[in-house]
Amino acid sequence: MSIRVLLAVNHPIVLWGLEKFINESPQIQVAGKATNGAEALLLVREQQPHILLLDPSLGRESGVDLIPGLLAEGNFHVIIFTEIRDRTAVDTAVLNGARGVVYKEEPAETILKAIEKVHKGELWLDRSTTGRIFISLLRPGKNTACLITEKITTLTPKERAIVNAFAEESGASNKKIARTLCISEQTLRNHLTSIFSKLDITNRFDLFMFAKLHRQEIGPPMSRLSQSIPSTSSL
């Protein structure tokens, strides 16, 4: 099945070129084009793409700030498509949920590679960006350890199993994770809403990073908690 990509770029000529180039790939197709945040939100809801290629400069709007709201509308990954090498903007985009960054001066083939890799659940980030993100997440703040412990203690055993599942199956869809846990997608979504609220996070990428960084505090892996996950009907 083709990878469905939604393009959100402010410049019509760039959109035209991207669509023409991407559609030449037998494995990828453009599912829609947007030039502003409202259009991107509408198309995400209607088209349910696999990948959103997002320009952080959407006219007067900040594409970076739109990422959490867009990700809340579907099960897809965001790749930033930018010409500005602004470390702060890039780091903020990744912390908001972007899974990759492609710069406009890079070879066109890089876009296709990034789309394919991110669709498989991988990150498309250079080493320096990855290093900065991990350092920012690991940097201890005042009472950080206590706050994290307090958040984790609010999770139920079922919710801890779900958090572990996200750590163990990086990039897996809600459907796959729900099937692994023997629960319905709707039940999983309900639990994720609770988990996001308790951990004070906004998207799946934040959940993945939290789970990876705090596996010991969260508890045993999913396989050892499987008996605590009852059937779909009893959840």
Rank of each mutant, 00 (worst) to 15 (best):
F210L: 02
L199C: 06
D65Q: 13
S62V: 02
G17E: 06
D55L: 09
L138M: 06
C182H: 14
P56I: 08
A31Q: 12
T153D: 12
K212S: 03
R189M: 04
R45F: 00
E39T: 01
M1N: 12
R215K: 15
A98T: 04
V44H: 05
R139C: 02
L155W: 01
G59L: 00
L137Y: 02
T149Q: 15
L70D: 04
R45E: 11
A31W: 02
V5W: 10
E122A: 13
G17L: 03
E83F: 11
A98I: 05
I80A: 12
R99M: 03
L52D: 02
R139K: 15
I80M: 14
K120Q: 15
R189H: 00
D55R: 07
S25L: 00
T232I: 01
K198H: 07
Q186S: 15
G32E: 06
V64S: 05
L147I: 12
Y103E: 15
P140S: 13
S25A: 14
R179D: 09
T187L: 11
K175D: 07
H50Q: 11
E217D: 09
L54N: 02
T130K: 13
S226C: 00
N75P: 00
I67V: 06
T144L: 12
S62Y: 02
S226I: 04
S233F: 11
V64H: 03
R179H: 10
V101C: 07
L125S: 01
L41K: 15
I51C: 11
E106W: 10
P56F: 00
K158V: 12
Q227C: 01
N190F: 01
P26N: 06
P230D: 00
K33N: 08
A40I: 05
P68R: 03
R87F: 00
K20L: 06
A108V: 00
N36H: 11
G69E: 08
V90T: 10
T130Y: 13
K120L: 11
G121N: 02
N96K: 07
A161I: 03
N23L: 00
F81E: 08
N36C: 11
E150R: 11
G59Q: 01
S231P: 07
K212L: 10
A89W: 08
L207R: 04
S233V: 07
I13A: 15
Q227H: 13
I13V: 13
A211D: 09
K151T: 03
T187V: 09
L112Y: 03
M209V: 05
C146N: 10
K120H: 11
V118M: 02
G121Q: 09
S170C: 02
A89C: 05
Q27I: 03
V14R: 15
T232Q: 11
G74W: 07
I148D: 03
R85Q: 14
W16F: 12
R127I: 09
E24W: 08
L54Q: 07
N23P: 00
P230Q: 10
Y103L: 15
I3V: 14
E83D: 13
V44W: 12
T154W: 05
L138K: 13
I84L: 15
G219V: 04
K113H: 13
P140N: 15
K175F: 05
N96P: 02
G100L: 12
L53Y: 11
T232V: 10
D206H: 14
M209E: 04
F76D: 10
T156Y: 07
T92H: 10
H50V: 01
L15F: 04
S128R: 11
F208D: 08
V101F: 04
G74I: 09
R87H: 07
I13L: 14
